[in-house]
Amino acid sequence: MLGYTLKRLIHFIPVVIGITVITFLVMHLSPGKPTDAVTDMNAKITQEAKLRLAALYGLDRPWYVQYFNWIKRLSALDFGNSFKDGRPAIKKILERLPATLLLNFLSLGLILAVALPIGIYSAIRHRTFFDKAMTVFVFIGFSMPTFWLALLLMILFGLKMGLLPISGLHSLNYAEMNLLGKTIDLARHLALPVLITGFTGLAGLSRYSRSSMLEVIKQDYIKTAYAKGLPESAVILKHAARNALLPVVTILGLSLPSMIGGGFIFETIFAYPGMGRLGYEAIMSRDYPVIMAVGTIAAVLTLLGNLLADLTYTWADPRIRYK
């Protein structure tokens, strides 16, 4: 296990370097310069002043020199300062990260709590009405333009019924509430974003756990368990589900990038104070340091998530450890 972990960690390094190269190249190859936002607005600026400004940020050097300078600062977690308000990009992200992590963890929890029972029940009641209804739900889940669903739910619950707030994370009078009030307020603000963020994953995971369960309950040892007179609940939960749901861990890891990616739309729609909205706003205002920081950190977070999923899987299932 330790050897495997070490191997995975060594594999980690080239991928992180690759992430920084891609982020840098994407930004570098994009038309326009970071200083354009300043210079284009100023009609009186001379060519000389433009060059001086470019030299100030090192933009006159070849791209690989710029890359290595960026990496050098990166290794000290210095992503540069935001063009918008001059504050360090990393600080802006760290402020937003907890909200994004909270949203994603809650969504993962919702996915697990709902999708696994659906998957298991669909499998043991294969081809019944419930199974068929769930299959329809899964297909709709895969095909749903989630931003549109978000819009409809906001209208329905937020405006028509007035049940839930439709933007932000706190109410205006949040500071004056007691602990219980604060929790309820937070939950009400989180309900729709969590549901929307988890929606596609919900469909995917219930499908996956269903087919995984279907494979397992065909096995001989399940028949044996039934034959020796164990009650169905024990067979399903103790013998079948344990084996069938192990690979689910990996699938959860793989769904991370799409969840973080979805954040760029959903956080914007719900005016949610997370990293996704920060990234979207940075793109719209061409805030280079913040864009690069969000890209790098989102990718590294995904990588860590996948690593964690793989390690958990290996830890839980000794069969694959020695391959």
Binding site: V15, G18, I19, I22, V26, M27, S30, P257, S258, I260, G261, G262, G263, F264, I265, G279, Y280, I283, M284, R286, I291, V294, G295, A298, A299, V300, T302, L303, N306
Partner: peptide, 16 residues
Amino acid sequence: IMLCFPSFFLILIVIA
């Protein structure tokens, strides 16, 4: 490496 990036973010950057 490519699978680590939320592809929607990459697309957003390039398109913008």
